[in-house]
Write a protein that binds this DNA or RNA. Structure first.
Length: 301
DNA sequence: AGTAGCACCTGATTGC
DNA sequence: TGCAATCAGGTGCTAC
């Protein structure tokens, strides 16, 4: 499943291939992959036509591409007000084909965008087997934390649907003290809190389990019973394991095949906890016990 | 306000 | 063999 490292791999791949390209047309092959607009998929396609993709940006697991329309003389100070946003859900993928004669759309292809990058024909397919992902065209809005962002963040605005999402674990502008303080409020199990994208974004089921294992904190421990030191250890562990995954995801990446398949195992050999219920713990050798719903397991903390 | 629970959807796997 | 139940999982909405 795509979590922060997988989505960042996709973002970097897309950015290299389609930034600066103009959208010629959009072909929505399954209406429900486009978020509700008053005019439906037709409006979606109309809003994209002739727009130029300025960049590919990410916060947590959310992706978006600020759009510029037309080429007015005063373009220099024109700030994109709109973006094509995307969420990969559980199974979303982007694939780019360069040149004319793109292959027939895959059965899971939900939308196909035709692009032009300086005269080169590009085909951008959005694939999504389980259909939890989506595409959307929406306004960019300023958020308080975007304005307060310190050094390192170029983010000035985020799509409306991302406004409630917290800065992600690898964002240099994230406020560590505020984040760990927020984590320790409330009665929910700490794993639930790690998965709450409004506090710190980007952490999903896999990396939550890995961080909990590394920091030796039980996933069902009430958040208020987690110490400040443990909370910082959890954040550090999340960053560390996601950084390692990102390096591996980034290396095995083919320029024209933007890989998003989080299950494809490039990092799975390194996992200590996720999906390992019943297997021996890498620290103590005792079997890992499943904890909670579909949570992996834990032993030896 | 904070939290639990469910809906959303499809393909693979398991059970009868 | 064939069909039905189960699972997987991120997000967003509703209800308590």
């Amino acid at each position: 499943m795509p979590e922060l490292p997988e989505v960042e791999t996709v973002r970097a791949g897309l950015d290299a291939l389609i930034s600066g390209a103009t959208i010629v047309s959009a072909d929505v092959r399954r209406d429900s992959c486009v978020r509700l607009l008053p005019g439906g998929p037709a409006q979606f396609a109309a809003m994209l036509a002739d727009a130029r993709i300025e960049a590919v940006v990410r916060r947590g697991k959310f992706l978006w591409m600020p759009l510029a329309h037309g080429t007015p003389p005063q373009m220099a100070d024109a700030v994109p007000a709109e973006a094509l946003s995307a969420h990969l859900g559980m199974s979303g993928q982007f694939r780019v084909h360069e040149g004319a004669g793109a292959p027939a759309p895959h059965p899971h292809c939900r939308a196909r965008l035709h692009l032009d990058r300086g005269g080169t024909v590009l085909t951008l397919d959005f694939l999504d087997q389980r259909t939890f992902g989506y595409l959307h065209v929406e306004e960019l809005v300023e958020t308080a934390d975007a304005r307060a962002g310190g050094a390192g963040s170029a983010l000035a605005a985020v799509p409306e649907s991302v406004a409630h999402i917290g800065r992600d674990a690898l964002d240099p502008a994230m406020d560590v003290e505020a984040a760990t303080r927020a984590w320790r409020r409330g009665t929910r199990g700490i794993k639930q809190v790690l998965l709450d994208q409004t506090l710190v974004s980007g952490i999903g089921n896999i990396y939550a389990d890995e961080a909990l294992w590394a920091a030796r904190v039980h996933p069902e421990r009430p958040a208020h019973a987690v110490s400040a030191a443990q909370s910082r250890a959890l954040l550090d562990a999340s960053r560390e394991v996601m950084s390692r995954a990102l390096v591996q995801g980034g290396t095995s990446f083919d320029a024209l095949y933007v890989n998003v398949n989080g299950e494809s195992g490039y990092f799975s050999r390194s996992l200590e906890a996720y999906g390992r219920g019943g297997e021996p713990c890498g620290r103590c050798g005792r079997p890992l016990r499943r904890a909670g719903r579909s949570s992996p397991a834990r032993a030896g903390w």
